[in-house]
Nucleic acid binder design. Structure first.
Lengths: 196, 196
DNA sequence: AACCGACATTAACAAAAGATAATTACTGCT
DNA sequence: AGCAGTAATTATCTTTTGTTAATGTCGGTT
């Protein structure tokens, strides 16, 4: 009855929840299947969802005045992409969301999540864990920008997400590290020649 | 009976709470009065508190291998500094916290906060608002590092925190922007000569 | 007033990054 | 296999930043 195959992809997000809890949670979600390249949220949208990546890889990107795309986040299996600011600030999204591979997302509206969680201590705890984790992670990224050089940030990225190197174009990784693709190419060369 | 003078400093953090709610909240806090320069949390500490700045100005800073201090956050009136990672990751603090002016903080242990909030829908909502705001803010800072040049980040800082320019040494501001004090000095010169 | 210490600015040089364009490599497609 | 489009690398040049050290500035102290 319960699709444990689905369940296990949601567990990493919430702590201290039983299979039944997670199953109930999934009742309020829908699955979004995407082809590689598909844009599933456009700049200016006001849909405030949380996307859990079950399978595949997505990016968030910004289009500047020159029409250039700048990728600011990458999310893959067992990670979540949320558009909190849409709901919290009541502002439309500044970013587009796109699948980079055939991708399966578990989607839940922020409003729905709030309703489900409301008044249920277990869910409150689960959601709090999830949000706190996201916050700690975001602050750690800020600290990396302050404390590390671009080269050090790249080395850290390689160490933490080695599997992404073969899945994501370098230009997106460069953007996420706050540098240009050309500069990343030079950094990579510098590193390989250093090792000799 | 109720010290409304104290209350109003906590309201910005939580939404939809009555004076009575906030008063009850404050029952579980203590006030920390600091002199300028006082370090009130040391690198390696495991005390997981949330600090609400009632009056004054504090910084978080990291001491690297060379013994240099690098400031990564500044917080002033009606802002909060939290050490979530201590609690969440169960790791000691990587940073020191220091008052830069005579400062008054409202301090609450993370554990205590969790107990108070537990099972109280109103508090849940208030805390959720607070955490979500912190998260959105942290992600916005990340986006600034990706989308803006150091000069643009400085101009944004000036616009958003004009009052800090006369309260904080430039070297701390430079660190927070991810650049060196020397570089900030040049940026400032560049800007003033541009305006002519 | 003279001195001290901390901070800001400036200078000089090296290193790195941005911008642009050319070349090379890769991938998918027919 | 050949072609087209995209990505990565390389080259060149400009701009910016880091580094170190010297100089200037300011506030507080005795």
């Amino acid at each position: 009855m319960i699709d444990f195959e689905k369940l296990k992809h949601v567990f990493p997000f919430f702590q201290e929840l039983s299979s039944e809890d997670v199953f109930e949670f999934l009742q309020h979600t829908r699955v979004l299947k995407l082809k590689a390249g598909e844009v599933f949220l456009e700049q200016g949208s006001r849909k405030s969802n949380i996307y859990f990546v079950k399978e595949g890889l997505i990016r968030s990107y910004f289009v500047n005045e020159k029409g250039e795309e700048i990728t600011n986040r990458l999310r893959y299996e067992n990670q979540a992409m949320s558009c909190y600011e849409i709901d919290l600030l009541n502002e439309p999204s500044r970013f587009n969301l796109q699948a980079l591979e055939p991708t399966e997302l578990i989607v839940m509206e922020v409003k729905t999540m709030r309703q489900i969680v409301h008044g249920n201590a277990k869910w409150e705890a689960g959601l709090r864990f999830f949000t706190n984790s996201s916050l700690v992670q975001a602050l750690a990224v800020v600290d990396d920008f302050i404390l590390l050089s671009p080269e050090q940030r790249y080395l850290k990225f390689v160490k933490e997400h080695p599997e992404l190197l073969n899945r994501v174009p370098n230009k997106y990784i460069a953007n996420v590290l706050g540098i240009t693709p050309v500069s990343l190419s030079r950094i990579r060369k510098r590193i390989t020649t250093k090792k000799q």
